[in-house]
Amino acid sequence: MGSFSIWHWLVVLLVVLLLFGSGKISGLMGDLAKGIKSFKQNIKEDEKDASMEAQATPQPPAGNIPGPQQGQASATQAQPEGASGQSRPAA
């Protein structure tokens, strides 16, 4: 009693066909197929764009990344505001 037999599924199919009609169901299936095709096409285009973008941008070598050395701060971090040796005009 826990599983449905083929007769249960045929009755369900008959009720669905009576409610929606065969024209609407075939139209829905056509729209679903168009949506799937469009989705697959967009996925392929995205993969092409990503691979072309990866080829176009050169990657720097992993060990030669320019930047401040350890223990050294950049010029903007090292000096607090107003301590750069320039005097501020009095307000």
Rank of each mutant, 00 (worst) to 15 (best):
P60F: 00
A62I: 13
S51M: 08
I65T: 15
E47Q: 12
G30F: 11
N64W: 00
P80L: 13
L28M: 10
L17S: 08
A50T: 08
D46E: 14
I36P: 00
M52G: 02
E47T: 03
G21T: 04
M52Q: 14
N42L: 03
P58G: 03
G82T: 01
E47D: 10
A56V: 04
M52F: 14
F39K: 08
Q55P: 00
V16P: 03
A62V: 15
G27L: 05
P58V: 04
Q79K: 05
N64T: 11
L32M: 08
P80W: 02
K37I: 03
L14S: 13
N42F: 01
D46I: 11
G85E: 04
S74K: 02
S51N: 11
A73P: 00
P68K: 06
L32N: 09
G63L: 10
L19Y: 12
G82P: 00
Q70V: 08
L14Y: 13
T57Y: 10
S51I: 05
Q41C: 04
Q77E: 15
S84D: 14
S38E: 09
D46M: 11
K48S: 08
S51A: 15
L19P: 00
A73T: 13
I43R: 03
N42R: 10
G71I: 02
Q86C: 04
G23M: 06
Q55K: 10
Q59T: 14
I25T: 10
I65W: 07
D31N: 12
K44L: 09
Q72G: 02
A54S: 13
A54F: 08
G23L: 10
E81G: 03
L14Q: 11
S84H: 04
S38I: 06
S38Y: 02
Q86P: 00
D49E: 11
P66W: 08
S26W: 05
G35M: 01
N64S: 14
A78M: 02
P68F: 13
G27Y: 02
G23Q: 09
Q79T: 14
K34L: 12
A50R: 10
F20P: 00
S74T: 15
F39Y: 14
K40L: 15
G85M: 01
E47K: 05
S51Q: 12
Q70W: 10
P58A: 05
S84R: 01
N42I: 01
M52H: 10
Q77L: 12
G63R: 02
G71V: 03
L14C: 14
L28T: 09
I36Y: 08
K48Q: 15
P60I: 01
P68Y: 12
